[in-house]
Simulated assay, not measured.
Amino acid sequence: MQMGSLFTPEPEQWGLRGDPYLSRALREALDETSIPSTDEGVDNLLLDRIKDMTGVDLRQELQEALYREEFAHGGMSSGQIHVPTWRDRFVPLLIARAAGSRRD
């Protein structure tokens, strides 16, 4: 199974307006990548790709939000990525989905 499959379905609620664009870019970047065999491998892969795309290491970032123009598509928080949402909800969700796919 490929990492891209873990991004469906998308979360019903996002942190800020840039979050879905980062998610879709991440899904596209990982679409052909096999799911690592461990949760730690999935975590490291996701955090490394997010760092590649945003320039921010979620493990160490102290700011709540960061702006990336490539994820700006209109609206008040356009281009804003909500760091706690990614660190505390989205990455753990993707890790859980990966673990579930290994059990199937």
Rank of each mutant, 00 (worst) to 15 (best):
A29N: 08
Q63E: 13
G4K: 03
F71A: 03
R97G: 03
H73V: 06
V42D: 01
R17M: 13
M3E: 04
D88C: 11
S5L: 14
S23E: 10
V83T: 10
G4Q: 06
L93N: 10
H73C: 02
D88P: 00
A25K: 06
Y21D: 06
S37Y: 09
K51V: 00
G4V: 03
G100P: 02
S23A: 15
E70M: 12
R97W: 09
M76N: 14
E12M: 09
G18Q: 05
L47F: 02
D43F: 12
L30V: 07
Y67Q: 07
M1C: 03
S23M: 15
I35W: 02
L94I: 12
T38H: 11
G75Q: 10
E28K: 14
L93P: 02
V91Y: 05
D88T: 09
A72C: 10
F7M: 12
H73Y: 12
P9F: 04
E70T: 10
S5I: 10
P9V: 02
A65S: 13
V83F: 08
M76D: 14
D19V: 01
G100R: 09
L94T: 05
S37Q: 13
M53W: 00
G18C: 09
A99T: 12
E64Y: 13
D31Q: 15
L94H: 07
M76C: 05
D104L: 15
Y21K: 10
Q80R: 10
Q63D: 14
S37I: 10
L22Q: 04
M53V: 00
A96V: 05
A98P: 05
L62C: 08
R68M: 04
S5R: 12
L26Q: 04
T54K: 01
T8I: 12
P9S: 08
R24N: 11
D57L: 04
H82V: 01
H82W: 13
D31E: 15
T54Y: 02
P20C: 10
K51M: 05
I81W: 02
R87A: 12
R59N: 13
Y21I: 02
A65M: 11
I50A: 05
L62S: 15
L45F: 05
L22T: 01
E64M: 11
E64Q: 14
L45W: 05
E69I: 00
T85R: 07
D19T: 01
P92Q: 07
S23W: 01
D48C: 07
V91M: 09
A72G: 03
A96Y: 09
G100A: 14
M1R: 09
D39M: 07
